[in-house]
Every structure is written in structure tokens, then in C-alpha cells.
């Protein structure tokens, strides 16, 4: 994953404590130019701490994080210009209108692309005089994303982009990101509580659990050696739970999914006599399945 010349963001041995509680115990990863990275972790895993450090808004007690070779807590104006941040909750100056927002940001970014901003706003279909505070969460997220895209930043760090957005706007957000990020060859670090949204967008996943990186790999490798088998609803799973090969058992309204490391050729033998009726089929493993398999449900 690492190539020094192409490394845009490097996170080295990050440590951080809140009082006596250690939140990060030596997190390290690096991001190459042009790739999209998803930072995944459960609540309390250290994901928010990591992203705050990477954004430069938390000083770690140990380790260092660099963007374009510069310490994130002391970024030069030029590096800030090359780095776009989406803050949790789609922070914006909500006392401004759409037109005022463009006018304000345009003055700071010489590479400002007004065409992109106008494209987003035409799709949004709101008048330029509408204040951001008078918009819905979803509408605000579009304005913020438009400003971010129009800035011409080479690196984007998006903290929990899905917060407050319904399914429609989440999907729209990812659509837009895919449109402009790939085209521009941008490097992206993105987090979200809704893992399935990230699957449509990220190339690499960095999974943090209990303050450590437990897995950092391309999406395909994350799912490697993880299989999902679907059983009918009501299947007796008592004999299968607790088996070291079984990573997760999920009960759906009409089925039961078993996530495990048993390959398909051995599945029949593995489940025989353990899951009741025995009728099952293999389905694709999603990123969320892999995430739960790696980190556990609780």
C-alpha cells in the first residue's frame, strides 16, 4: 500500500489518551495519491479520535500525522488549500446564502471551479438567495459538497458524511463523490457509520478496533476468506454460535445469515446437523459483513 513518492497522508504510531483511558494505541497507515480510503470502526473504537487528529483538530499524545509531508496541526496555507475537509454534520456558515457562500470561498481558492458549484446548485434547484440555515440537512450537505468539490483540493477528508442524511441524500452524496473524485484523481479519506454506503465508493478500508488498526487492505482483500451463508428463518443456530469459524450470526425477518471462514466446499459438512433443516445458500459478502466479521458485533 505504501509508496513514499505517492504518499499523501501518513499516519505514524498515533497514540492518544483521554485521562487514563487509552483511545489509540499506535495507529499507523498511509494513503496513496488517487485512492479512496474508508476509515471504519465501531463506536468507541478510536475512529473519531483518528479522524480528528488527521484533520488537525486533536493533538495526539504520541505519533504524528502528515499531509503532503506537513504536520497536520501546523499546515501551511498552501497545504490547507490543497486539502478539503468535510466536518461532521456538514458544517457550514449557515447565516450565508448560496451565492454568498460561493463568493466567500472563491476568494480563498485560486483554482475555484465555479462550473462545478453551479452544476451542483442547478441539481439542487434552490434559489441563490436561500440561506443555508433554511435548508434541510440533505440540501445543506449538497451545498457543502459543492463548495468542497469546487475548491479544487487534491485531498479530501470527509468526517461522517452520512450524519443526518436520509437514504436518498446519502446515495446522492456518494453519486456526486464518485462523479468528481475519480475524474479529478483526488485522494479521499472518508468515514461513516453506515458502512454499506462506503462500499459504493472506497477502494481501501482501514478498520480500527479498540484503538488499533486490525485490518488495512483493498476492499477485495478485506472480504477475502469471509463467506456468508443464508438459512431459512427459524433455523436452530445454537450449535453453531460459539464456533471459532463463525464470526457472526444475523437474524433477519425471513432468514438467518451466518458469516464464517468456512469455504463453500466445506460448508455442507460444517453445517450438517448443526443448523436444523439444512437448506441454505451462499450469498455475496458485503463490506458491512466483513466489517462485523473483523470487529465483532459488540
Amino acid at each position: 500500500m505504501n509508496s513514499d513518492a505517492d504518499t499523501v497522508i501518513s499516519v505514524e504510531n498515533l497514540e492518544h489518551s483521554y485521562g487514563s483511558a487509552k483511545a489509540l494505541k499506535g495507529v499507523s497507515f498511509s494513503m496513496e495519491k488517487g485512492r479512496v480510503y474508508g476509515l471504519l470502526g465501531k463506536n468507541g473504537a478510536g475512529k473519531t479520535t483518528t479522524i480528528n487528529i488527521v484533520m488537525g483538530f486533536l493533538k495526539p499524545s504520541g505519533g504524528v500525522c502528515r499531509v503532503f509531508g506537513e504536520d497536520v496541526s501546523r499546515m501551511s496555507p498552501e497545504t490547507k488549500r490543497r486539502t478539503g475537509l468535510l466536518h461532521e454534520g456538514h458544517l457550514a456558515y449557515d447565516f450565508m446564502t448560496i451565492a454568498q457562500t460561493e463568493k466567500f470561498y472563491k476568494s480563498f481558492y485560486p483554482r475555484w471551479d465555479g462550473g462545478i458549484f453551479r452544476y451542483f446548485m442547478e441539481k439542487l434547484g434552490l434559489p441563490e438567495s436561500r440561506k443555508i440555515k433554511n435548508m434541510s440537512c440533505g440540501q445543506r450537505s449538497q451545498v457543502v459538497l459543492a463548495a468542497l468539490m469546487a475548491q479544487g483540493a487534491e485531498v479530501l477528508i470527509l468526517d461522517d458524511f452520512s450524519m443526518g442524511l436520509d437514504a436518498g441524500y446519502r446515495r446522492l452524496f456518494i453519486d456526486r463523490l464518485n462523479e468528481f473524485v475519480r475524474e479529478g484523481g483526488k485522494t479521499v479519506l472518508i468515514t461513516s457509520h453506515i458502512v454499506q454506503d462506503l462500499e459504493r465508493f472506497v477502494d481501501y478500508a482501514v478498520i480500527i478496533n479498540k484503538g488499533e488498526v486490525v485490518k488495512a487492505a483493498p476492499l477485495g482483500d478485506i472480504k477475502k476468506d469471509i463467506y456468508c451463508y443464508r438459512f431459512p428463518a427459524g433455523s436452530d443456530r445454537r450449535l453453531i454460535e460459539g464456533d471459532p469459524s463463525v464470526m457472526d450470526v444475523s437474524v433477519n425477518n425471513d432468514s438467518v445469515d451466518i458469516i464464517c471462514s468456512v469455504p463453500p466446499e466445506k460448508a455442507g459438512e460444517f453445517f450438517s446437523g448443526r443448523m436444523g433443516s439444512g437448506d441454505f445458500y451462499q450469498r455475496d459478502v458485503s463490506l458491512e459483513d466483513a466489517f462485523i466479521a473483523v470487529t465483532g458485533k459488540y
Binding site: 484533520m55 496555507p77 490547507k80 466536518h87 458544517l91 457550514a92 481558492y109
Partner: peptide, 11 residues
Amino acid sequence: RRFRISCHLPQ
């Protein structure tokens, strides 16, 4: 924490 936006302005 809207001040974070101001902190990240390129200056």
C-alpha cells in the same frame, strides 16, 4: 464547532 471551518481557511 463551526470555528473549525475558519481554522482551515487557507491562511
